[in-house]
Write a protein that binds this DNA or RNA. Structure first.
Lengths: 223, 223
DNA sequence: TACCTCCTCAAAGAATCTCTTGAATAATTG
DNA sequence: CAATTATTCAAGAGATTCTTTGAGGAGGTA
């Protein structure tokens, strides 16, 4: 009890889990899986890598226990092992944003300048949604909406958003959200809406954070 | 905006921070620094590594922004960049315990069998401490007690605990705590106390978690 | 059974990481 | 100013990681 080798082995164990997140492609995978399960080919497409390499990274995540699988017909679906993994991913992003010198610049390079992009917090959105003062639009792909979305949100994937804007009720502020604080979909949606003269803001983060805050959410396709 | 290379670079940035935790020795350093600042030689001793290697790992942590330094006379003191880093470390331990297949075994090998070791939660301890029903003993080294401890706790470092037991008030349950859930000091203290016929439990985690829960704490040496 | 789809595995080269050794540096002290 | 203390740096050996390529499953379908 309490000897050095055993302590080193234990902390090497923690390090193995950190190692699973210590690769940009695996981080992207976790960010996608935080929205719901996906199969390998789909993930490969999402992170722009070969299926073989994606499979390699998924095995690394699975070996560390961060993801689990299920088979359905010929496909194998991966999902996060639990909400805890999503919370760890959120904590990692928080620390990175606060202390990693270049995250701000990298985020700006990817997302564009966000100065004119107004954000709304989860709590404020929950209040205004409850009061019927806003309409909430989920701009993620439909499969992610189906896996879980903010209660009352409309599914309007960013791809066809321009064509579907006419179906949005007029004269009410729109709040768009997507995967999380570093997801570009909601930014694009808000910019598009504002160009069309609509009042629009983006939720400060995304659906996974909303669900982890125990705010109301629904599962399934639009009614 | 939104292009692949920029996205990869951003997520590589998050991965760099994970990489900083992706080594057992660096994880041990973070666990110690969560208790308060330390200088390099001290840390080298704590993790049983050469000063040069410890310095190397500290630079890796500093490059990722996880730790910052201050100089005092000839020594350089390292500390965690913020509470966020401690929270990330806690999240990593949580995920490891929940999903990494071998953490349980590794923890048992290091800490010994914990079956007969009763634990108490933070919230229950806060209540019982408030009611004056327990006496709380901090068994970490004195320097860590001085950097911050549970309000009302007595400093009784595990090293000389046996000799100082006579100074403990009789007829009241003792709760021991130390650095966190994987710290061996409190386990040793509870076993020692119970061998001497005292009612004793250990706090389920440690001081950093107590402070992050916004429970009452004090800074400075014993009065 | 043969064939198809989806995924995993093995090998291999380039790049990166860990830790040791011994020298260099910065601030303090005599 | 030289000596001392605490820490960092540089170089290198050995291990590990990432990615690609092409082959090898496992399960489902005709």
């Amino acid at each position: 009890m309490g000897d050095r080798d055993a302590k080193d082995a234990l902390f090497d164990g923690f390090a193995e889990v950190a190692k699973a997140l210590a690769n940009g492609r695996r981080a992207e995978i976790v960010d996608v899986l935080a929205q719901g399960e996906r199969h390998v080919e789909d993930l490969a497409d999402e992170i722009d890598q070969s299926v073989a390499n994606t499979s390699f990274h998924l095995r690394a995540l699975a070996a560390a226990g961060l993801v689990v699988t299920r088979r359905e017909r010929t496909r194998i679906y991966y999902r996060l092992a639990s909400e805890r993994v999503g919370a760890l991913w959120e904590a990692l992003r928080d620390v990175s944003a606060a202390h990693h010198g270049r995250i701000d610049d990298l985020a700006r390079a990817y997302l564009g300048e966000r100065d004119e992009l107004e954000q709304i917090t989860r709590d404020e959105l929950a209040l205004r949604l409850d009061a019927g003062e806003v309409i909430v639009v989920d701009v993620r792909p439909e499969v992610e909406f189906a896996a879980g979305h903010i209660a009352g949100a409309l599914s309007m994937p960013i791809d066809g958003l321009g064509r579907r804007l006419r179906h949005l009720p007029e004269g009410i502020e729109v709040v768009a959200y997507c995967r999380g604080p570093y997801c570009v979909f909601a930014d694009e949606a808000v910019r598009l809406l504002r160009r069309r003269g609509r009042a629009a803001r983006r939720l400060e983060d995304g659906f996974p954070e909303w669900r982890r805050s125990a705010l109301p959410f629904e599962i399934g396709v639009a009614s």
